[in-house]
Nucleic acid binder design. Structure first.
Length: 561
RNA sequence: UGGGGGAUCGUCUAGUGGUAGGACUACGGACUCUGACUCCGUCAGCGGGGGUUCGAAUCCCUCUCCCCCAGCCA
């Protein structure tokens, strides 16, 4: 945890509930779990759940398990297990135990037998279509299966033979015997086990029957001694089934499921299905494309673990569905990086400036602070020479009154250096500005007595001779509408923002930046927060823009129009 | 029209019978060698209608709107 973590989290209903359970000694030690299915990459929505589970255990002196809900070998892969482990660790959390639902297959099987023997479960030998057809609808009750009253001994025999591999996929299924007329569809004899002759990443070919989510999840919680099983709202309907199984099985503990609203972010999508499509159809560059809301993506984009943890605390935990502005995530990044990112100079769209009164062959080394508010972060030497690059946008020929940057005849301070005056504008044949002739005032060197002369504007710059060419990738929101998935008339990919990635191939960066390791964060002054991409090499540096700085000028500029 | 949830400033979120509070955004200002940061200030809300009560966001009735559920996915 870092010093930018906020100390006092606001109260929410889950914290209140757990506190009560602790105070009334319903539980002695709080145990939570984060239970991903290893069938895809984690996204920012998972971060909310991760943060909640770990925070609750930590606050009450308990522990958290990382449990892979690997009950469906058709979808799950080891590489996702590895990626999930990386992501949770990257966020800064340490799980007390790493668990797998598949570790409990033998116990789960024994409990299934127990239900059968009690007359609480039966083997149904119909196919999926028949079962679906009998389930009823939202308004009509279901009909009982013809196999519902099969004697327990017969079900047991069949179930044992299912395990032994005597039947093909789909031939039989184990169902709980609850109530086909229940208004809650989850209680209409839900499927507990299905046959899948499928290799499992962990159990190999040991099993050809696999428990369903409903049968595996609560019992896994009980086995691990999970006290509070926190999940999202769509499982609220499953709680009666969760409780039914716990009550009818000789489980060693009594976990309780509590549901909260999942995270929604605007201008993106957060469902595995849609994220997969973006990857599979090539709309993005992979699961860790910096535009993706996956943890791998936003990490590559340059987001920090602390900023995400703070974000998760800030948004709170409730049962009401909400949509959080993407900007809230960015603000948390800025808050974090503002404090700890060293400052550097970079020019994205270079315009040549010639300091006419600066010696032709000289280099002056200026000492610039790495952080304006934090001297502990030290200083660095930055070269200045006769020819410079400045940001093209920092010069205007016909500048409005409120434009504080360079204009013909005007003065501006070069950050950390001198005040310069624009004496002459050099244009090409078509009238484009190609260079500026400026003169500098040697008395105004930063840190010297004459430096307190005030000018309105300060701009960043780079020595043309020393600046390093770099590729800079500017990222913007992935979609151009706030709720791309909400449009019922159009496919969400039609709302993709065509300008979500802008590659600047000939940007210039301050010498030294090219040598920084991938993953290093910095602020390019007046431009934004950047991170060295994993594609970067000292010979071909690549920087990703994680977030811009707040830009008051652009607002003023808009108002002027 | 079966069941399960949810509705408080633009956004997120406190408040469970006693002056609706905070954060973010927006806006205004101060500061500034980053139009950043920081600081100060301002605007802004209980889905509708009834009822109970001295007093209702909170309790009761009713209406409306939104989300989830008919996988051998999780």
């Amino acid at each position: 945890m870092t010093d930018t973590d906020r100390p006092e989290p606001p109260p929410h209903f889950i914290r209140t509930r757990i506190r009560k359970d602790v105070e009334t000694e319903v539980v002695q030690q709080v145990v939570t779990r984060f239970p991903p299915e290893p069938n895809g990459y984690l996204h920012i929505g998972h971060a909310k759940s991760i943060a909640l589970n770990f925070a609750m255990a930590e606050e009450f002196g308990g522990r958290t398990h990382l449990r892979f809900d690997d009950t469906n070998p058709m979808k799950e892969e080891q590489r996702y297990v590895d990626a999930i482990r990386d992501d949770v660790g990257w966020l800064g959390y340490e799980w007390a135990r790493e668990c797998y639902a598949s570790d409990y297959f033998e116990q789960l099987y024994a409990w299934a037998l127990h239900l059968i023997d009690q007359g609480l479960a039966y083997v149904d030998s119909q196919d999926a279509d028949a079962i679906r057809e009998q389930r009823g609808t939202l308004t009509e009750p279901g009909r009982e299966s013809p196999y519902r009253d099969r004697p327990p001994a017969e079900s047991r025999d069949l179930f044992e033979r299912m395990r032994a591999g005597e039947f093909p996929d789909g031939a039989h299924v184990l169902r709980a015997k609850i109530d086909m007329a229940a208004p809650n569809i989850n209680l209409r004899d839900p499927v507990l086990y299905r046959i899948r002759h499928q290799h499992h990443a962990r159990t190999g070919d040991a099993w050809c029957i696999y428990p369903s989510y409903d049968f595996a999840h609560g019992q896994s919680d009980a086995i691990e001694g999970i006290t509070h099983s926190l999940c999202t709202l769509e499982f609220e309907d499953h709680r009666p089934l969760y409780d039914w199984l716990i009550e009818h099985l000789p489980v060693p503990a009594r976990p309780r499921q509590i549901e909260f609203a999942r995270l929604n972010l605007d201008f993106t999508v957060l469902s595995k299905r849609r994220l997969s499509r973006l990857v599979d159809e090539g709309h993005v560059d992979g699961w860790d494309d910096p535009r993706m809301p996956t943890l791998a993506g936003i990490r590559r984009r340059g987001f920090t673990p602390a900023s995400i943890r703070n974000f998760c605390t800030e948004i709170g935990v409730t049962k009401s569905e909400s949509v959080i502005p993407f900007g809230a995530l960015e603000r948390n990044l800025r808050d974090d990086l503002n404090v700890r990112a060293p400052r550097r100079l970079a020019v994205l769209n270079p315009l040549k400036v010639i300091l006419t009164n600066f010696p032709d062959d000289e280099t002056e080394w200026l000492e610039l602070p790495n952080h304006p508010q934090n001297p502990d972060m030290g200083t660095r030497e930055v070269p200045l020479s006769r020819e410079l690059w400045i940001e093209a946008g920092d010069f205007m020929i016909d500048a409005p009154k409120k434009f504080f940057r360079l204009k013909p005849g005007g003065e501006v301070r070069l950050r950390g250096a001198f005040i310069v005056r624009c004496d002459e504008v050099v244009k090409d044949d078509s009238g484009n500005v190609v260079a500026l002739h400026c003169s500098f005032d040697p008395d105004t060197r930063s840190g010297q007595p004459g430096a307190d002369r005030k000018v309105k504007g300060t701009i960043h710059w780079l020595s043309a001779e020393h600046a390093v060419r770099a590729e800079v990738r500017l990222y913007d929101r992935l979609f151009s509408v706030p709720h791309p998935a909400a449009d019922k008339d159009r496919d969400f990919v039609e709302h993709l923002n065509p300008d979500s990635l802008q590659v600047v191939s000939d940007a210039r960066i301050e010498p030294g930046v090219e040598a920084m390791a991938p993953g290093t964060h910095m602020q390019f002054e007046r431009t934004g927060y950047f991170v060295v991409d994993r594609d970067s090499t000292p010979d071909a540096p690549v920087l990703n823009r994680a977030a811009t700085l707040r830009d008051t000028w652009s607002k003023i500029e808009k108002q002027l129009r």
